[in-house]
Amino acid sequence: MNYLLVQEDEDGVERLCGRCAGVEGLFVEPVPPPREVLTLRGCRPDGLLNDVLAEPNVSLRSLGDVCVEVWDGETPVQWWTLVDAVVVAHHPHPDAPERYDITLGAGVRNEESFFELPAAPRFELFAGSAVAPAGHCHAVDGLFEARADPPLVPLELIGCEPAEPLLKALRRPARAERDWARLLVLNRHGAVMATRTVGLAITQARPSVLGGTLIDITLSDGGDERPSPAARPIWAEWYQGPPAEPNLWAPYDSQGRAAWLDLTTRAWRMPTPRPDRSGGEHHLDGRFVTDVPGLHCAIGEALLGPGRYFGREWNAFKDCLCGGFGVAPPFTLTWHDSEIARRALADVAGDPEGELSYFEDIVRLLEQRGVTVNLR
């Protein structure tokens, strides 16, 4: 059995729901949001957005995903993504000719669960592969609209041995429609390599294609945490066991490296906190640090070894430096071939003020926390 289905009872105790030989539908492309038309009012474009507006045939150019941060005073409070945004039209703003009203076509995805507009909002825009500043505007018409939930994508549990919680759901499927469980993915040694949350709404149960007393079960909602099919080779590699050599993540692109980091998060979910080590010197192999996921893969390996977790983005990395993840400052980090990361991340935004690149911001954070950084 390669998968376990578990659920917490009312007392918070984890109970086995069932075992499964296989799962179909674990790897899926995210369902794209429907296309909408939005208008950036009173926009002062910058970066990629300014470059696109200066070109002929603007409507043929995609901005990629545009991040919209809604600020309340000096604090960002909401994050939206305009998926595959395309400029449809633009013209000078009536009250400020130096600004523009820019109409975009895009899918809309909300990164938070609230929609209330601040009393005096400010809209900051970020775009491009480097998620660099792209300007700001007074308002975004069409952003704060009610939207239907995306369609559910089912999950097939193949060759199941159901335990009592799952048997109960099979006997009374209507009562299980609002229940959730965790799907534990095991590697070939039987250790948990990943977990995903799934709904227990059962739409079909039938004798398994694997025969015997096993059953196949269709869950109507496989959850929204499933990896992309592009992550399949990374999961196949980890299925053989945690990586024992450094830089096995290096051949993958940014999406693959992010999937690699996702699997490292399981390493720190221990029943008791791992004691921290301080002092000494750690060596970071910077030859393959060409993007943000690669930077965090390399730092995790430098501090803890292959396949270990030490943050997957700036905020998580900051938390790890506070302790509880195996290594805590003070220590020395010698970053070999650091110029590769400096150049590759030169246009990747770091601090909110835009004064430092991601590379420079990581180095500053390390030094602020008591790490001696030697850039080689």
Rank of each mutant, 00 (worst) to 15 (best):
A231R: 01
D179E: 13
W268F: 14
A21L: 14
A119F: 13
A89D: 15
I217F: 02
D276Q: 07
D319G: 06
R312I: 07
R41M: 04
L104K: 10
V70L: 12
L104N: 07
A96S: 15
N57D: 13
H283T: 11
A181N: 06
D224K: 15
R196E: 08
R61S: 09
D51E: 14
R178H: 13
R178V: 08
V13H: 08
I299T: 05
R109P: 00
P165L: 12
H189T: 09
L375T: 05
S62N: 10
L157Q: 04
E353T: 12
E367S: 09
C137Y: 12
E177S: 13
A259F: 04
I299Y: 05
L321F: 11
R175D: 11
P352R: 13
P76H: 07
C160H: 06
L26V: 03
D72Y: 05
G105D: 06
I299N: 02
F317Y: 15
A236V: 08
G350H: 01
R99P: 00
R188Y: 05
L365Y: 05
Y100D: 04
V86T: 14
A230H: 11
D221T: 01
R343S: 10
R364N: 09
R178M: 11
L104D: 05
A130G: 01
P229E: 01
E313L: 06
R376I: 14
L333P: 05
A250H: 01
N57Q: 11
L200W: 01
P243A: 10
L214G: 02
S357L: 11
V86N: 08
G279M: 04
R15V: 10
C43Q: 12
D141V: 12
P233G: 06
E14V: 15
D179A: 13
W79G: 08
L219H: 06
D179W: 14
L321T: 06
L53W: 09
R232Y: 08
A119T: 15
A346R: 11
P162M: 05
E14C: 12
P227E: 00
P207N: 05
V140E: 02
G279V: 06
A134F: 05
V31N: 05
C67T: 14
I217G: 04
F114K: 13
D351V: 07
R178T: 11
C322F: 09
R226V: 00
D291V: 01
E313C: 09
P293T: 00
F144I: 14
Y3W: 15
G190L: 03
Q368K: 14
